Structure formats: C-alpha cells, structure tokens
Computed example of a mutant assay.
Amino acid sequence: MRARTYVIYDVFTQTPLAGNALAVVLDCEGLDTAAMQRIAREFNLSESAFVLPPQDPRHRARVRIFTPDYEMPFAGHPTVGTAVALAERAAEGNGDGILVLEENIGPVRCAVSRPAGEATFAEFDLARLPEQLRLSADAEAIGAALGLGPHEIGFENHRVSFWSAGVPYVTIPVANLDAAGRVRLDNAAWSELAPRKNGTVPASPYVYCRETESRGNSFHARMIVPGSPSYEDPATGSAAAAFAGAIMHFDQPREGAARYWIEQGLEMGRPSRIRLELDIAGGNLAAARVGGHAVKVAEGTLFV
C-alpha cells in the first residue's frame, strides 16, 4: 500500500460542478490493470485516467483510461482533463505548451493554454481520423428505440450514420431541440439493432441537431450509454471526434479550417461546451482537433 495523489476535474466547462467529471490518478507506478479497474469503479465516474511514466522519454506520460467496467482505447474528456492536470501541476497553474500523451490508441498530441480570465484550455489532435462504418439498422427502427417518430429523424441532408475515430458511435440527426429533449433510450430495442463495438457492447447513440440553446454554438448533442441501467454522458470528446466524419460527409465544409462549438449535457444539468476544429484540404479531412476548458474541483490521496 502507498499514497497516490489524485485530482478531480470538471471538463468541457469553465464552471465547477458542470461539464464531465474526471478523476486523474497521478502516481500509478506499481498498479496493475485489475487495480486500476477497481479504483475506477471506486470513483464511479464515467471515466478515470491513470498517469504512468512514458514509454518514449520525449512524451509527457503514459495514460490509461477506464470506465467503471472496462478500459478505453481513447476518450476525449480524460485526454483534455489529464493534459490540463499535468500542465497545471508542472507550472503551478500557468502552464502553456505542447505535450504528448501515450494512450492505447497511440500517441496523442495536446496543446494547453490559459487565456486571460479563463480556465485552462486543452485540445488534442485526433490520433485517428473518423472512418465511416457499416450500419444495417434503418432510421425508423433507430428512431423508435429513442422514442421518436420517423419524421423526427434527420434534418436537411443529414441522415443516420455510423462513425469511429477510435470509439464508434451511431450519429443520429434529429429535427430540433424539442426532439432531442424527448429522447428516451429503450435498452432492449437498442440492443437488438445497434452495431457492436469490440463485438460485444452496443455502440452508443449520439443524437444531434442544428438548433442550439446558446448562440455561438453550432450543434446541440446528447450521448447515452446503453446498458442496465443506461446513463447519459454530459460531454463526450470521442463522440465529437467521430462526429467530425458526419460533418465532413453531410456538410462538406470549404477548404481551410472550420470550427464548431458543440453544446451537450444541458438536459441533465451539466452544461458542457466542446470545440471541434477541422482542417480540409482537397475536399478531404486532413486533420481534426477536439478541445475544451477544465477546472479542478477536488484533490486528495488514495491509499492503495
């Protein structure tokens, strides 16, 4: 048994007790996979991050990410939150710069800054650009599993599709905020029709619409994790990364840089704001970044 420092950040927000909560365990030498999984279950947050020495000395840290039930290859709010935590710890809250985190998906390059009067901001380059996957379920069945009618699925030329930038999501456009607010996942129905990630767990639905609650945002989104029970995630960076594929496919943004702010978590009282940036060259997605602010809300010591 030894003492290990941990911090808790609210990510994709500048306001404590909003956004997506993350536990970051900073001293993880000697912990095996089973121990990390038990600690993640003890925190019982959507994800917890565990910081280890890097395998490549040019990188800042090796980071492993766990939900209470399994390890993730990559996740957005743990990447942003861990980058902010390491930068603030190294520079006593004033750390700007570039750092690379080694995640299961591969090296993830992060940029950290602290704009005047704001919480620390971090963004990461997608280690894997979004790829469209095969989806056999029809839109009407997907809508029914969400408690919506056929007329509420889709807007403009946006249609239900399936994308992954390391973690797969079924991206589901809905007509407006009213439809998004009435989404209720039928676990049994979703389990029957949803594609599987890792061959076992149903991919999560990522519901979005063009109408937003706040001016300056491009999309309103909700992400619900299926299971018994299912639960809603207040801010999902890996889903925003996958969603970049849907934006490219349906909106076909112009050459150069495109920036989108995505609001999420409003229905559950955890308002969040995610920044998604796309670099388009020759009509193709050349690179993409996901970013957001993070604020520390707690710190302490684990004795494990």
Rank of each mutant, 00 (worst) to 15 (best):
R62Q: 13
A122P: 13
Y169C: 01
E140Y: 13
D178H: 13
A83T: 08
G97D: 07
V160W: 07
N157E: 08
I153R: 01
G97R: 08
L99A: 04
P73W: 02
D69Q: 15
P107N: 08
A175G: 00
D186F: 06
G147I: 14
N187F: 08
A90F: 06
R89S: 15
E156S: 13
Q132H: 03
E118N: 04
R109D: 05
L99F: 04
G76A: 06
Y70G: 06
S161Q: 01
D69M: 12
V167A: 09
E88H: 05
G143C: 12
V170D: 13
G154K: 11
E192V: 01
N94E: 04
A90K: 03
N94S: 03
H59I: 13
P107V: 09
A61R: 15
I98D: 11
Y169I: 02
A83N: 05
D138M: 10
E140R: 15
W190I: 00
R159I: 07
L133D: 12
A91W: 10
Y70W: 12
R109I: 14
P78A: 06
T171C: 14
L99K: 09
A119L: 01
L129M: 00
S164I: 07
A175Q: 09
V183N: 02
E152H: 00
R60K: 14
A188C: 01
Y169T: 02
I153H: 04
G81V: 13
R159T: 11
F155H: 14
R60Q: 12
G181C: 04
A180I: 08
A111G: 09
G154Q: 09
P173G: 07
G166P: 07
A83P: 07
R128C: 13
D186H: 12
L129W: 04
E102V: 10
E140V: 15
E102Q: 14
P57H: 14
P73R: 00
R182H: 12
L148W: 09
S113E: 14
N187P: 05
V108D: 11
A145I: 04
P68E: 00
V80N: 14
D125M: 01
L135T: 10
A111E: 15
I142P: 10
P73V: 02
E140S: 15
T79Q: 13
G181S: 14
R89L: 08
E118G: 04
S191H: 07
